[in-house]
Write a protein that binds this DNA or RNA. Structure first.
Length: 421
DNA sequence: TCTGGGGTCCTAGGACCC
DNA sequence: TCTGGGGTCCTAGGACCC
């Protein structure tokens, strides 16, 4: 039996952990550069529904409304969320085998001998313990496949009479939960696909689960086919304590303010090149191709500009120097004087295992693995920017706009909460 | 004053090669 | 006289997730 434990409105709930004064207020958290709303606590969700404030909407459009309604607004405080997340995951680990899926979700696996009643009790125990240890509200869902565990998790919060714990063990459980679940609430089905399903007469998750998998593959894609199999109770997605290696690694970001200068564009792209290479080395991969792109904003009052360049490496590489060299070479194709750049990024694609052998006998790798290893170990020990490449620029100009940042209560001595006596 | 996230995987289609 | 395949690489964009 598999389970999914996830925090409710993770970022917003995490903001409340060290600040009990906002615990009973509607809290929302903004994305990088304070652009969009990315998290809402349950109180904010309820209130937001009446006011038309919802997740992923641009913040500036609702800022006035939110202020008047007494919303507490926070910028993303990733340092804090990462620590809160770690505490949550550690608590889960004390209950059994875990697989961390994202910052606020973890899958767990329990022996088949556990009875329904016992699992249910265990779920409540998990919730209580996480609240006691971390002050984070979570939902717990059990199911025979990852997708069904997700569905049960959804039911644990959304179904009438929900208690924070739900279980799909029998055919009837499955039917009960899925028939009350919209297609776009199924893991892997978004708004667009749900619309197409609707046209075909498939109105809820139970009807989707009843479709022949082969037919769904023909009408949609292999991903949808997998989803249908999982909904039927076949554990199609494997339990993986080790994350499968990524096939592509991107680093992209919008600028705090528009960029018009080619040096700044180069600095930003180089920074992305560094970040993506570091992540690639973390998973022991080499890349054979790279996508470099830069774009203006589609919302600006000017012709939209977007350009991407594909670079193929002679020999697959994981050496930051080679990657930055290719970025420099691509710059003239990306930079157009007068363009107000809004966003740029680098993607390392066509990733291979580091053992990957090159077919071309005449091309020799220029990588210096020991140099990269040294670089990574120094930066890992002393902080990410201890050693960096000059092409990224000397000043750190691309700091995010974070106007509503809370204290870094877990990562800065000066921000540690004080208890007044 | 100005403001619209970031990451990954998949697929359709065009260009090109033999 | 008229017609014609299959593979690879790249681009662009769709779709999903959190």
């Amino acid at each position: 039996m598999l389970a999914l434990i996830d925090a409710t409105g993770m970022y917003a709930s995490a903001e409340k952990v060290f600040d009990p004064t906002i615990r009973n207020k509607p809290v929302i958290v903004l994305s990088n550069n304070d652009g969009c709303i990315v998290a809402m606590c349950p109180i904010a969700k309820r209130l937001g529904k009446e006011l038309g404030i919802s997740k992923f909407g641009p913040y500036f459009q609702v800022a006035d409304k939110a202020r008047k309604a007494g919303f507490v607004v926070k910028s993303s405080n990733y340092e804090l969320y990462a620590d809160i997340s770690q505490r949550m995951m550690e608590t889960c680990e004390s209950f059994g085998e875990t697989h961390i899926y994202s910052i606020d979700e973890c899958f767990m696996r329990f022996p088949d001998e556990y009875t329904k009643d016992y699992l249910e009790e265990l779920g409540h125990d998990l919730r209580k313990t996480i609240w006691r240890h971390v002050r984070l509200p979570v939902g717990v869902g059990f199911g025979p496949s990852l997708t069904l565990a997700k569905a049960a998790n959804h039911a644990s919060k959304k179904l009438p009479g929900a208690t924070g714990v739900a279980l799909i063990a029998t055919y009837n459980d499955r039917k009960h939960v899925l028939s009350q679940m919209a297609c776009d609430d199924v893991w892997g089905v978004g708004r667009r696909l749900a619309k197409r399903l609707d046209v075909m007469g498939i109105k809820n998750a139970w009807q989707l689960a009843e479709q022949p998998a082969k037919k769904i593959r023909k009408d949609f894609s292999i991903l949808m086919e997998n989803t249908v199999r999982e909904l039927k109770g076949e554990a199609y997605y494997q339990w993986d304590t080790v994350r499968p290696a990524k096939k592509e690694i991107y680093s992209t970001r919008s600028f705090g303010k528009r960029v018009t200068c080619n040096i700044e564009l180069k600095n930003a792209l180089s920074g992305h090149g560094e970040t993506a290479s570091r992540k690639m080395r973390e998973q022991n991969s080499l890349c054979a191709g790279m996508v470099i792109f830069a774009a203006s904003s589609p919302h600006d009052n000017a012709p939209y500009f977007k350009k991407s360049v594909y670079h193929q490496f002679e020999v697959p590489t994981c050496d930051t120097r080679i990657i930055l060299g290719a970025i420099s070479a691509a710059l003239p194709q990306l930079y157009k004087s007068g363009t107000r750049y809004y966003k740029c990024g680098v993607g390392l694609v066509d990733l291979h295992d580091s053992q990957y052998q090159q077919q071309d006998l005449f091309a020799v790798s220029q990588d210096d693995p020991s140099l990269m290893k040294m670089l990574d170990s120094i930066n890992s020990r002393y902080g990410r920017h201890t050693l960096q490449f000059a092409s990224r620029g000397i000043e750190q100009k691309f700091d995010m706009k974070r106007e509503f940042l809370s204290k870094r209560a877990t990562t800065r001595w000066s921000d540690i909460p004080r208890v007044m006596c």
